[in-house]
Design a protein around this nucleic acid. Structure first.
Lengths: 214, 214
DNA sequence: CGTAAATGAGTGAGTGCACACTCACGATAA
DNA sequence: TTATCGTGAGTGTGCACTCACTCATTTACG
């Protein structure tokens, strides 16, 4: 099992950091995530959350003042712990190797991150859905993830470009295509839930060829 | 201007077909679309819709029994008119030319469809957001779009594969990558609203190289 | 040690309100 | 007249949120 790239582990980490969070509060968070992912934030009532968590409704409001803070409580550990770790971990794997080929880099990224997307699909769906509508969440996301990519992914891309391993496109475009293509797996999972064929090799090949220099 | 690939035109078409819909009802539909796109379906009140449409709240309920039917009223013309026309139009352009290259096909698709995505971004956002949560909408979408792709896009892909112009991947995968990559432009527009650089050439090149045979 | 006081998690019936939806009525046109 | 469109005050309810309370655990102190 990897370091800290899954939600459940990240929840643990956050709880440990904050002095332990009572078990019922963990149940509330877990139930919220599950229901938000299934039904959407707006279609989920605090009563449902309480029921699923096996808790009284008042308990939901002990730690989180209102429903929006509860959403933040679910998403925050993901944004501040899971994503940063994910990206930094990748950077460590890769930065040490000065003569990386395009294939090596892209395999390294895609392979692990697909597992990540599959494992964290629920929270990703919630995040994406709410980002499209809540401005504060969106700007928070941008200020968190933007620098993360700039500092960890982009230098690697620049090096590969310098070595003639990668097309000479702006880093943001390359990131768009890499991340976007991986996220299409999320969409596929929503539209074709029965299909479980392993997609990694195909995705790696598509991205790799697509990003090859002319 | 193209045939019938934009929402506003499609609304007109639907109205013409149904015998003309009173102008206030059109305003209701337009206001609904705009608000749903900005705020999400659940965060939009019928009162807001009425205000924006310059109409009494009762008027909203004259044609549509409830809020869900109103959503359907917004999305239906898109699913049953706009998307089919879009895809069939493409097929007509392309099917007549037996020796199409990969580059020609992908340019033909991407070029127009990017405009389409930009023009219909609002309704696409609404559709995608609600599909992820409403099962009936999802299955309706699948049964509409699935056959459409099978009948119009897939034969072209098969022909190109036979001519050695395209990788030998399942058609659904190829469609996933093509459509998915184009949709990343929607995401980019949400996250970086200020950026308006023209992306078409880069996207064409990425898809074209990514789908080249080995 | 024993007991009292303080702390804070957990409870669930209760509250107020925002919202989706209704309906009796007016206006216009055929 | 009849039919259709539009109106907006009014209604019922489902929901987020509150609060006075219980109970268990920890701290204070003689």
């Amino acid at each position: 099992m990897e370091k800290d790239t899954s939600i459940s582990e990240a929840f643990q980490a956050v709880m440990a950091a904050n002095g332990d969070i009572p078990p019922k509060q963990q149940q509330v968070l877990a139930a919220s995530l599950e229901l938000f992912a299934q039904q959407g934030f707006d279609n989920t009532t605090t009563k449902q959350i309480a029921e699923k968590a096996g808790v009284a409704e008042g308990t939901v409001y002990r730690r989180y003042k209102n429903k929006d803070e509860l959403l933040a409580g679910v998403l925050a550990p993901f944004m501040t712990q899971v994503l940063p770790n994910l990206i930094k971990e990748f950077a460590q794997q890769v930065v040490a190797r000065p003569y990386l080929t395009r294939h090596e880099m892209i395999s390294a990224i895609v392979q692990n991150r697909l597992d990540f997307i599959k494992e964290n699909g629920a929270i990703l769906r919630v995040l994406i859905r709410e980002i499209s509508v809540k401005n504060d969440l969106r700007s928070q996301f941008i200020t968190h993830v933007g620098p993360l990519l700039r500092d960890n992914l982009f230098p690697v891309l620049d090096r590969l470009k310098a070595n003639g391993e990668l097309v000479d496109w702006p880093d943001s475009r390359i990131a768009q295509f890499m991340i976007g293509t991986m996220l299409t797996e999320l969409v596929r999972a929503v539209l074709l839930p029965e299909d479980v064929s392993t997609a990694a090799p195909v995705i790696i090949e598509f991205i790799e060829k697509g990003l090859a220099p002319k």
